[in-house]
Amino acid sequence: MTTYVNGLIRQGFGITGLVEPEPGEKLLRTVAGMNDELRRPMMLIVSAVKER
């Protein structure tokens, strides 16, 4: 995560949001091994705006 965020900052972007989505309750109940996905984020969503 550090590499991505610092890379954006070095290129002149300002971070406006950061989300690490987690699996929903249904997935946790129905997909074997999905509970293990709570140890680390499955995805990282970064919102950034180029600063002038």
Score class of each variant (00 low, 15 high):
1 M>S: 14
3 T>M: 04
4 Y>V: 14
4 Y>D: 14
5 V>M: 12
6 N>C: 06
6 N>L: 10
7 G>W: 02
7 G>I: 04
9 I>W: 08
10 R>A: 12
10 R>Q: 13
10 R>H: 07
10 R>P: 01
11 Q>T: 08
12 G>Q: 12
12 G>M: 10
13 F>D: 09
13 F>P: 04
15 I>H: 01
15 I>T: 00
15 I>F: 00
16 T>N: 06
17 G>F: 07
18 L>G: 07
18 L>C: 10
18 L>S: 05
19 V>R: 14
20 E>N: 03
20 E>A: 02
20 E>T: 10
22 E>P: 00
22 E>R: 09
22 E>Y: 01
23 P>D: 02
23 P>F: 05
24 G>K: 02
26 K>G: 03
26 K>I: 11
28 L>K: 09
28 L>W: 04
28 L>N: 12
30 T>I: 07
31 V>E: 07
31 V>I: 05
32 A>F: 10
32 A>I: 10
34 M>A: 07
34 M>K: 01
37 E>D: 12
37 E>Y: 03
38 L>V: 06
38 L>K: 05
39 R>N: 09
39 R>T: 04
41 P>M: 01
42 M>T: 08
42 M>D: 04
44 L>D: 03
45 I>F: 15
45 I>Q: 14
48 A>P: 06
49 V>H: 01
50 K>R: 13
51 E>T: 14
52 R>C: 05
